[in-house]
């Protein structure tokens, strides 16, 4: 699954550690999501969407479509 987490984070000048803190996950998890090595759960995706004030599909994109 592709995502725009890195871009959105950069737009707000967040470090991975800061974003991790805001989403209550580890920095390693943010890194893995940004690199497409780990797909977040639906609750975590909703949390990220709420944080960036966007819809889930504006952040995450299913690569099959």
């Amino acid at each position: 699954m592709k995502n725009r987490l890195k871009v959105l984070r950069a737009e707000r000048n967040y470090t991975q550690a800061k974003l991790a803190e805001l989403l209550d996950v580890s920095r390693q998890t943010i890194n893995a999501i940004e690199k497409g090595k780990f797909d977040p759960s639906l609750p975590l995706a909703f949390k990220a969407a709420r944080l960036f004030n966007l819809k889930i599909e504006d952040i995450f994109e299913d690569e099959e479509y």
Partner: peptide, 10 residues
């Protein structure tokens, strides 16, 4: 290692 947990933060 597979999940890149040892990589430096940005």
């Amino acid at each position: 290692k597979q999940l890149g947990c040892g990589e430096e933060g940005e």
